[in-house]
Simulated scan of single mutants.
Amino acid sequence: MFEIQPMNADVYRQQTRRSTLIIALIFLALAMVLSTAAVALFGEPGGDNLRFNVGGVFVAVLLMAALMRKVFWTQAWMAPAVYSWRLKRSLMAITNVMHHVKTAVEAGDPTAMKLLRFYHLGLNQMHQLDGNSSDHGQLIREMDEHKERMEALAIDIDQTRFDPAWIEAMKSASR
């Protein structure tokens, strides 16, 4: 279950820039240390040590992937980046079945209507967090039209939670 959380866009961008910088600096340090160590251990003085340098960078990539999953992912300084990653994953899951969702919305399916409302709210937040206002007007119009339809059917418009079971319901309803 994923839930949309209120977030200040300026603070979000500042924190994600900081976490990106931290990750980049750790990766650079690891890559340099591991490449230097590989050349020192296995290389030849004055020889072609490119493969050892590349090997050190490759090991740094693997180590960073492990650190990201096991250590950094749960750190407070990574929370905004993790939140946006989870939000984008939720939105992508809905996008992948959007043709089913829209068909079900037209048929008046309450689950589809909730799913589309969550999608609109999540996409709106992602646009705000990323500072992307290119299609914002169109999105707001679609959100308002859908909100009015939900209100007319007495469906709760406060759909800040995403239940992955809704995706399965859309897939099975279309079969």
Results as ranks from 00 to 15, higher is better:
M1E: 04
F2M: 05
E3S: 10
Q5A: 04
Q5F: 00
M7K: 11
N8F: 04
A9N: 02
A9H: 01
A9C: 01
V11S: 11
Y12F: 11
T16S: 00
R17N: 08
R17H: 03
L21P: 00
A24D: 01
L25W: 12
I26K: 08
F27M: 11
A29S: 07
A31P: 06
V33I: 15
V33N: 12
L34T: 04
L34Y: 07
L34Q: 05
S35V: 06
A38N: 07
V39W: 10
A40K: 12
A40E: 10
L41V: 09
G43T: 04
P45G: 10
D48R: 12
D48E: 13
N49C: 03
N49F: 05
V54Y: 14
G56Y: 06
G56A: 09
F58N: 11
A60V: 04
L62K: 14
L62D: 04
M64K: 13
L67W: 08
M68P: 02
R69W: 06
K70L: 08
K70W: 07
V71N: 01
F72V: 05
W73F: 07
W73D: 05
T74I: 02
Q75V: 02
A76E: 14
A79V: 09
A81Y: 09
V82N: 04
W85D: 05
W85Y: 12
K88W: 03
K88P: 00
K88E: 10
K88A: 05
R89F: 07
S90G: 12
L91P: 04
A93C: 11
V97D: 08
H99G: 06
H99F: 15
H99Q: 11
H99I: 10
H99M: 11
H100C: 04
H100A: 10
H100S: 07
T103S: 14
A104G: 00
A104M: 01
V105N: 01
V105A: 07
V105S: 04
G108P: 08
G108A: 13
P110G: 04
M113V: 01
R117W: 06
R117F: 03
R117G: 12
F118H: 03
F118Q: 03
Y119W: 03
Y119N: 01
L121M: 09
L123S: 15
L123D: 11
M126I: 03
H127W: 10
H127K: 14
D130V: 00
N132Q: 02
S133T: 13
S133M: 12
H136D: 09
H136T: 05
G137H: 02
Q138F: 14
D144I: 11
D144N: 15
E151R: 15
L153W: 05
L153A: 10
A154Q: 13
D156H: 03
D158C: 08
D158E: 14
Q159S: 02
T160Y: 15
T160Q: 15
T160N: 14
R161D: 07
F162W: 00
P164D: 02
A165D: 06
A169V: 01
M170H: 08
K171I: 04
S172G: 00
R175Y: 10
R175L: 09
